[in-house]
Amino acid sequence: MIKINEKMKELLKKVEKSEIKTEIKADELAKIMFVNFKEVYNCIIIDMNNTIKEESINFQRILSMFGDRTGYEASCNEIRINDYINYSDEGTVIQLGKLILNAWKDKLKTEYPEYNFCIIFSFSNGFGTMRFHVIREDESRWLESDLNKYKDEAIIVEEI
């Protein structure tokens, strides 16, 4: 299921035919499109350098800081697209966000078919942000269901 708020719908119409206009190094793009995911204490998290070790994590402290697994995942599974590209316009960031969302969707479902995920792409003030979390029956989603409440952000949410 895909949900898109009104602000993102407007931006998508505006940039639907735009070309990606930026300098992107293939290795930088690969870092954010094909990130390493790792399961830690029943959470799926991004492990960019493949260095996270479950035994090194004080998970009780993490839960006390973030409240639940969903909050932890949504917070630590955040990547700002603009940090990986040299120059970009809003059309480029939005087009890349859609590409990354689809890449993450395919990879998460392939590697963790037993889980359902909420993948979020948001755009605000020229910056695109990707994040995701596992959908849990005993925890609420990270975002409210009415995405139009987020007036300052353009948002796409895909639940898989």
Rank of each mutant, 00 (worst) to 15 (best):
58 N>T: 04
92 T>S: 15
65 M>T: 13
96 L>E: 00
105 K>M: 02
94 I>Y: 03
117 F>C: 02
77 N>M: 02
87 Y>R: 14
75 S>P: 05
38 K>P: 05
33 M>Y: 05
138 D>N: 15
117 F>T: 01
53 K>Q: 12
80 R>W: 09
72 Y>W: 14
42 N>P: 07
146 D>P: 11
13 K>C: 07
54 E>G: 09
3 K>D: 05
110 T>F: 11
12 L>W: 08
74 A>W: 04
49 N>Y: 15
156 I>V: 15
69 R>A: 06
116 N>M: 10
66 F>W: 07
159 E>Q: 12
54 E>L: 06
88 S>N: 11
138 D>I: 04
93 V>T: 14
122 S>L: 03
65 M>P: 06
81 I>R: 04
160 I>E: 11
26 A>T: 12
54 E>Y: 08
34 F>M: 07
23 E>L: 14
23 E>S: 12
68 D>N: 15
108 L>M: 07
132 F>N: 05
40 V>S: 12
126 G>T: 02
160 I>F: 13
124 S>G: 09
120 I>E: 02
43 C>V: 00
6 E>F: 09
146 D>R: 12
97 G>T: 01
88 S>P: 09
112 Y>K: 09
129 T>Q: 11
157 V>D: 08
114 E>L: 09
28 E>K: 12
106 D>W: 06
149 K>M: 13
107 K>Y: 00
44 I>M: 02
88 S>L: 03
12 L>E: 05
72 Y>T: 03
117 F>D: 01
92 T>P: 10
20 I>R: 09
112 Y>H: 08
47 D>Y: 06
63 L>N: 10
13 K>W: 08
138 D>Y: 10
70 T>R: 11
65 M>D: 14
